[in-house]
Design a protein around this nucleic acid. Structure first.
Lengths: 212, 212
DNA sequence: AAGATAAGCGGAGGCCCCTCCGTTTAAGTG
DNA sequence: CACTTAAACGGAGGGGCCTCCGCTTATCTT
């Protein structure tokens, strides 16, 4: 039992929606904001979500005051970093579609998705909590992911590169089983194999509704 | 959403059961421990569960190091304080029984119980969390409370001072509705009225199994 | 009573959080 | 180009968390 598990409360406090990323920012401000997000992503991924904010500011080469001006609370920062990662993951789906055969794009994207979850493994609980207490964020990000995956699946199915009788939601669930693979040094390898396995299953029977 | 809501994780980490309160302590150590608990109870009740530990040490007239030696983490301290409060509440049941008529003892105890919950109102969530993540603590304390209440009820019913067809568990549930009374300045008064109301209900029909 | 010794003390120190405010500077304005 | 000015910067400062370790002292021995 950690203190964080105890210190939960504070009235629901719907902190104003989301901090600004306005366009009318001064150039230096935009630069700093960007740098902070970049560094924060790195720090969070290597130290976990509770990495030192002063460290982030330091590494970004800005004063701590600047960090706090851009992201008034740690949660704001975490949320923006998280949102961006999900967005870039989803954007990758589009790019992959343009440069690869649909089935290859699907497979590669699933690998990335799994890698993404992988990186978050250590902070699974923290993120779950974030996502639990911010249903809007959850809805948006999970929606984006579903759409990205669905598009990939439909494209591949549309060209008979994978079976047609597949529900992309099921596939997403299957990918999420990653979370339940017990901690193990080789778990990254295992997750890659899981994706390959899924792809084999998807390709099997491609071009025919049932059986090879 | 507060950071505490996010920073939840850290592996379940079954921190060793409970810190010692051994008898083989040096006199000064026992003194300090006691003083710390006393002050901590005060600070937690006036500042909430996240009151400053340094402040507690200061007010107790000991060094911060001493506080940490006795209670290696905040949770340990909180847990011991909580446990003591529940214990003293339950002990009061016995004392009241000795000095008052059973029905009066019951009423007075219920008032104290409600007052106790009252004091914890601000940190309801925090405590809920503590209790959620420490099922042993929860089991023990809720067990003690049930027993105390049951004894009081049985004593009063045994002398026909309250109706006999009452389940002390139901009564406990009723008392807990306190938690759901919305925040209001007069809520303490309301909770006292609730207890009185319950007592009226209990006395109504005393000496006869059904009806007045 | 004097000495030995380990239990216990406490606060300095390192790191972090967050705020406040005097200083710098990007970006309009004439 | 100055020049102005509000936006943005950054870091000092006050407070907290927790650890580490040299100093005290309760208690035991003789």
């Amino acid at each position: 039992m950690s203190m964080e598990q105890i210190l939960v409360a504070k009235p629901p406090e719907n902190s104003e929606p989301t901090p600004p990323a306005a366009k009318g920012m001064r150039a230096d401000a935009r630069r700093n904001r960007e740098k902070l997000l970049e560094v924060a992503a790195a720090v969070f991924s290597e130290r976990g979500i509770e990495g030192s904010l002063e460290d982030i500011a330091r590494r970004a080469g800005v004063g701590i005051g600047t960090l706090y001006r851009h992201f008034p609370t740690r949660e704001h920062l975490v949320e923006v970093v998280y949102r961006r990662e999900v967005e870039s993951l989803c954007a990758a789906a589009g790019e992959l579609s343009l440069n690869h055969a649909p089935d290859v794009a699907l497979e590669e994207w699933m690998q990335r998705f799994v890698g993404y979850i992988a990186a978050k493994r250590g902070m699974a609980n923290s993120l779950r909590m974030l996502v639990n207490t911010n249903s809007e964020l959850f809805a948006e990000s999970s929606g984006m992911v579903s759409v990205a995956l669905r598009n990939l699946v439909e494209a591949a199915a549309g060209q008979d590169l994978i079976r047609r009788d597949i529900d992309s939601t099921d596939l997403l669930h299957a990918l999420f089983t990653i979370y339940s693979i017990p901690d193990a040094p080789d778990w990254h390898e295992r997750s890659r194999r899981l994706v390959k396995l899924l792809m084999d299953g998807l390709r099997w029977g491609a071009g025919a509704k049932h059986a090879p």
